[in-house]
Design a protein around this nucleic acid. Sequence first.
DNA 1: ATACCGGATATTGTCAACAATACCTGAGTC
DNA 2: GACTCAGGTATTGTTGACAATATCCGGTAT
Lengths: 226, 226
Amino acid sequence: MSELASQTYTRADEAFDCLQTAIVKGDLAPGDKIGELDLCSRFELTRGPLREALGRLESRGLLVRRPHAGVKVVSVSASELVELYRIREVMEGLAARQAAERMTDQEIADLQATLNAHEAMIDEARGQAYYQAEGDYDFHHRIATGSRNTKLAQMLLGDLYYMVRMYRYRLSTSAGRPHLALGEHRRIVEAIAQRDGELAEFLMKRHINAARKNIEKKIEEGLLTI
Amino acid sequence: MSELASQTYTRADEAFDCLQTAIVKGDLAPGDKIGELDLCSRFELTRGPLREALGRLESRGLLVRRPHAGVKVVSVSASELVELYRIREVMEGLAARQAAERMTDQEIADLQATLNAHEAMIDEARGQAYYQAEGDYDFHHRIATGSRNTKLAQMLLGDLYYMVRMYRYRLSTSAGRPHLALGEHRRIVEAIAQRDGELAEFLMKRHINAARKNIEKKIEEGLLTI
DNA sequence: ATACCGGATATTGTCAACAATACCTGAGTC
DNA sequence: GACTCAGGTATTGTTGACAATATCCGGTAT
């Protein structure tokens, strides 16, 4: 009766993971028409599972498929990245509010511990990259699951975050403000610890808003094109 | 070079649509383990395209699949429906705000015309069902696309609305307050026409909030179980 | 020279057979 | 009598071949 994730890992799952990471990391060029056979030889798969994985990816908006014409990775634009952050703002605001209402004390303690670890990384000055790549992701990940809102977590973790990471890789951008972000993270967690959902939502929205404005500034400076 | 939707309709698309409507309408029972062969004979398909469609449906959260154990339609609960409305509240609030900023005058005029049509339906007293089923959907549909936020529209139209409709069918619930809803719709459109994004967001959030409270009331009264 | 049209080709969509695995049934044991 | 375990069976996962179609290239006409 245990709800443990099934150990069996099907070829289609494998294909899906390979393709997803390849797209997110930018190994597959956007707009490029990639053939199914190429992908098969590339990932040591056969066409059946591959096609199933392609269907899933298409449904998640990571690639587009025209019948008999092949698949191509979605073209990305900086303006779309900004739109993504607008969505994140409202959805993660909600997640923060619900997390403040529903997270267990243990989960909150773990979250605070995570933040301490991040701070140590940054203080060592070499952790900037780590913080950007993993720490920030970890923070938002925990809050999404802590919301106890199944669909919300699914949309954030299964769709949006992959999109954001893809755009970040493609446009080679990053928030680039680790210290500021850490302080904002701290205040959000404090609000959650005090079970102040309204404040947690406000702070989370402002946090993501700041990240969005940072990106918009870069666009204006011409550092991010298309 | 026109961006027109490809006319070719593949068997997998067909399977996807059939399955999706069957799930949403409740023809496929939740929790039931349905075999692939059953589905094939039921919809006159073969297993290849079917499996591709199953992958897409799974990725959208309409069904769950355990390797070698078959697929089953997601079990739904009233509390999850409430969670869905919480997500709608923030996402459609954003959509309304962006629609107020970006919709063309023509689109706004069309939206107002749609509302007038709905009002006529309701005044004829027999249109209640129509309004619930199509009118409300049409209204929210137009605002989602009017936001000009590709991903937002995709998430609302491709994921959330199907989920909401499924839950409505399954729990045989409906907002059941057409006149009130129409008034709220009118005020939202007025705010959009005045290009007041902030107000449009506020009104939309309150509109969906009211619908959620209505559902919660029904749950409390024991009309909606599980 | 450019635009249009028709066929060749390579790629995608589809199908049916083969292999692997989870579930069920039955016997055996504590 | 209840539980465990092993084998059979039916279902799913995978594979390779076949059919359909969009793209590309060459020819022709304007």
